[in-house]
Design a protein around this nucleic acid. Structure first.
Lengths: 213, 213
DNA sequence: GAATGTGAAATTTTTCACAGCA
DNA sequence: TGCTGTGAAAAATTTCACATTC
C-alpha cells in the first residue's frame, strides 16, 4: 500500500507549499518588485529560509547570491510546475451549497481552472446558468462529458451518492477527481483522487484549542 | 521558527487521520458492528494496518488480540481527542458564497460545532437569518462577541479584508481562527490560526495530473 | 557583507519484523 | 491461527553548518 511521497520529481510537501509561494510572488510582481530573498519569503509565510531555497531548488530555480530570486522567474516556474499557466476544463457534480459556492469562486481563474459545466440530480436545476456555468441533469452526464472533453471533475454531491457518481465519472473517462464529499472513494487505478476533507482542518484546530485549555 | 509537529502528545499526522477514522467507526456503529480490526480500517482508508494500530496507541486505545478494536470505544476516544463530543460555539465572518455554504453545512453538528452568529460588511445582509444563523453588520462584531463568548471564528471574508478582520477578532478575544481566505495572517502569539487553503488540494491534483500526461 | 546552494545531521513519520496473547 | 503491540529499521522531511559567489 505504497505512499505517494513524490509527485513526479517533486516532494509532496514542496508541491503543497507552491500555492502560497505563488500567491506572494504574484503580489510582489503586481507591486513591481523584481527580486526577493528566501529570508523575506520565509518571514511572510512562516517558513525557514533554507526550506524556501530547497523548494526552489527542486523546481529548478536558481537565485543570485546577495540579490535573491527573480520574482518573474518564480511566478513562471511555479505556474509551470502546477500547470496553472494554461486553462484546463473541469466539470462540477452536485450543485448544493458547496457546489454553488465553488461555481462562484473567482479564484479558480488564477489557477487555470475553468468549470465548463455542472450537473445535479435535481430536475429543477437543469437548464439554469449559475455564475456563467450551465447546469445539466445527471442523465446528461456521460453525453456532455464526451463532447466537453474535460479531464477533471469536482465532486460535491452528498456522501450517499459519492461512490456511485465517482464511478460514473471514472467510466466516462475523467482522470482526476477533486473529492469534497469526505467519503473515501474506491476507483479503478489510473484515476487520481484528491480528497479535500474540510474536517481535517477542523480536527487540527479543535485539538490545538483543546490542548491549550 | 519552530514547527508544530505535535499537538499536545499526539503527532500532527495522527490528528489529521482521526476524522477519517471517526467517520468509518461511526458508520460501523450505526450498522451495529461491535469490533473492527486495524487491517479492515486500513483497507477502507488506504492505510497500513500497523499505522492504524500506532495511531490508536497514541490516543490510548488498546485492542483485543484476535478480535480487533471495540467500535464504541474508538468513537468515544476519537471524539474526546478532538473535543467533538461537546458543543462549541463559533462565529462566521464573511457571508459570501463560501460563508453561506458553510452556514448551510449540516456536517458541523457531527463535529460539535455550532455557528451561533455571522457577520458581514454588507448592510443589506444585516438582520437576515441564514440557515438558522442570525447575520449582523460588522459594526456589531465586538459587542456581539462579548455577549456570545465564542472562542472560535471561521474567516470567510475577501482576501483584502482578511488581515484587518482577523486582528479585530484576536483583539476581541477569539482564540482560534479557521482561515479560509488563503491569506497568511499575522496575529499576536496565543491566537491559533488554522489555514484552510483550497488551493493546496488543487495544486496537488494539478501536479499529479501533469506528471501523468 | 549578504545572499544562495548543499552535504550532513537531526527530527519526524512510516514501515518492517516479530513477540505475545486469546 | 489471527490479531494486537512495539522496538528497530527505513524513509522522508526539516534544520544545521558552512562553502561559495557576487
Amino acid at each position: 500500500m505504497a505512499y505517494g511521497y513524490r509527485i513526479g520529481s517533486l516532494p509532496l510537501t514542496t508541491v503543497q507549499r507552491l500555492p502560497s509561494y505563488l500567491r506572494v510572488v504574484r503580489e510582489m510582481r503586481r507591486l513591481g518588485r523584481e527580486v526577493v530573498s528566501s529570508a523575506r519569503l520565509g518571514e511572510l509565510l512562516g517558513l525557514e529560509a533554507v526550506q524556501v531555497r530547497k523548494d526552489f531548488g527542486f523546481i529548478g530555480i536558481s537565485g543570485m547570491p546577495k540579490m535573491g530570486y527573480q520574482v518573474e522567474e518564480l511566478v513562471l516556474a511555479i505556474e509551470h510546475c502546477l500547470n496553472w499557466n494554461q486553462v484546463r476544463d473541469a466539470v462540477l457534480v452536485g450543485v448544493g451549497h458547496l457546489g454553488m459556492a465553488l461555481l462562484g469562486y473567482e479564484g479558480f481563474k488564477a489557477h487555470g481552472l475553468d468549470i465548463c459545466a455542472a450537473f445535479d440530480i435535481d430536475p429543477s436545476l437543469a437548464g439554469l446558468v449559475v455564475h456563467d456555468t450551465p447546469v445539466w441533469h445527471m442523465d446528461r452526464l456521460e453525453p456532455e462529458l464526451r463532447s466537453l472533453g474535460a479531464r477533471m471533475a469536482i465532486l460535491t454531491v452528498s456522501p450517499d451518492a459519492a461512490q456511485e457518481v465517482a464511478l460514473r465519472l471514472a467510466r466516462a473517462g475523467i482522470e482526476g477527481i477533486w473529492n469534497f464529499t469526505g467519503c473515501p472513494l474506491d476507483l479503478p487505478p489510473g484515476v487520481i483522487v484528491q480528497d479535500q476533507d474540510i474536517a481535517i482542518g477542523l480536527a487540527v484546530l479543535s485539538a490545538k484549542l483543546s490542548s491549550r485549555a
